[in-house]
C-alpha cells in the first residue's frame, strides 16, 4: 500500500467511516466488558447480589464494593488515559447492571420463578459516578484510588439503602423475629443452597448492633483503595499493543 494514500475519498466519508467504527467499537467493548465483569462479579460476590436475604449489613456491604471496583479501575486506564473519556467506571457498571437486570427478569423470575423484589441486583451507579468525576476533576490515578476508592466503599450502603430498607424491617413469624428479607428466603426455598451455606451477619461486635454497616463500609472503602491501585496496573497491562514472535508462543 502507498504510505501517502488515504483509504477514503473525502473528509465526509472519513467522518462517516470513523463514526461507524465508533459504534462497532463501543458495542464490542460494552459487551465484552459486560461478559468479563459479570462473570467476575457473580463468582466473587454473586450470592450477596442475587438474594435479598443475603443482603445483610456486614458481608454484603464488605464484599460487593471490594470485588466490584476491579473492572472500573482497569477500564478507566483505557478510556481516560488514552482517549480522555471520563466514563470508564460508569460504562462498566451500566454494562454489569444491564446484564444482571436482564438475567434477574428472564431467568431468576422467568425460569426459576423467584419474585423480582427478591432477586434485584445491587446498585453500583453512585460509586461509579463518583469514581469517574474524581478522575475527571483530579486527573490523578492516586487521587482517584484514595478518594474515589474510599468513596466507592462508603456510598455503597447509602446508595442501596432506599431499595433494601423496606426489606430490613423486623417481622415476627411463628414466634421468631427476623427481617422481611429473611422471610422471603424462608418461603422461596432454594433446595440447592441450604441455609447452612448462607453467609450473613456473622461476627462478634455486631452484637452491639448499630455500628455494623458503617464499620463494614469503611473497611470496604479501605480495601477498595488497594484493589483500585492493583487493577489500575492490570488495566495498563491489558492496554498493551505489543506483538510477539511465533517462537514465543
Amino acid at each position: 500500500m502507498s504510505a501517502s494514500q488515504s483509504a477514503v475519498r473525502s473528509r465526509a466519508e472519513a467522518v462517516a467511516v470513523s463514526r461507524t467504527f465508533d459504534w462497532m467499537i463501543l458495542f464490542t467493548l460494552f459487551t465484552v466488558v459486560l461478559g468479563g465483569y459479570h462473570i467476575h462479579y457473580m463468582l466473587t460476590g454473586g450470592d450477596w447480589d442475587f438474594w435479598t436475604d443475603w443482603k445483610d449489613r456486614r458481608l454484603w456491604v464488605t464484599v460487593a464494593p471490594i470485588v466490584s471496583i476491579t473492572f472500573p479501575a482497569a477500564v478507566q486506564v483505557m478510556l481516560w488515559y488514552r482517549y480522555r473519556l471520563p466514563i470508564g467506571a460508569t460504562l462498566c457498571v451500566v454494562a454489569l447492571l444491564l446484564g444482571e437486570w436482564i438475567n434477574r427478569y428472564l431467568n431468576f423470575w422467568g425460569w426459576t420463578y423467584f419474585p423480582v423484589n427478591m432477586v434485584f441486583p445491587s446498585n453500583l451507579i453512585p460509586g461509579a459516578i463518583i469514581l469517574d468525576v474524581v478522575l475527571l476533576l483530579g486527573g490523578s490515578m492516586t487521587l482517584t484510588a484514595v478518594v474515589g476508592g474510599l468513596a466507592w466503599g462508603l456510598v455503597f450502603y447509602p446508595g442501596n439503602w432506599p431499595i433494601i430498607a423496606p426489606l430490613h424491617v423486623p417481622v415476627e413469624y411463628n414466634g421468631m423475629m427476623f427481617t422481611l428479607a429473611d422471610l422471603q428466603g424462608y418461603h422461596y426455598v432454594r433446595t440447592g443452597t441450604p441455609e447452612y451455606i448462607r453467609m450473613v451477619e456473622k461476627g462478634t461486635l455486631r452484637t452491639f448492633g448499630k455500628d455494623v454497616a458503617p464499620v463494614s463500609a469503611f473497611f470496604s472503602g479501605f480495601v477498595s483503595i488497594i484493589i483500585y491501585f492493583l487493577w489500575h496496573f492490570f488495566g495498563k497491562w491489558f492496554n498493551k499493543t505489543d506483538f510477539i514472535s511465533g517462537e514465543d508462543v
Partner: peptide, 12 residues
Amino acid sequence: GWAALAIMGVVN
C-alpha cells in the same frame, strides 16, 4: 474471565 479485558489492547 479477566482476560476479556485484553480487548482493550485490540481496540488500541
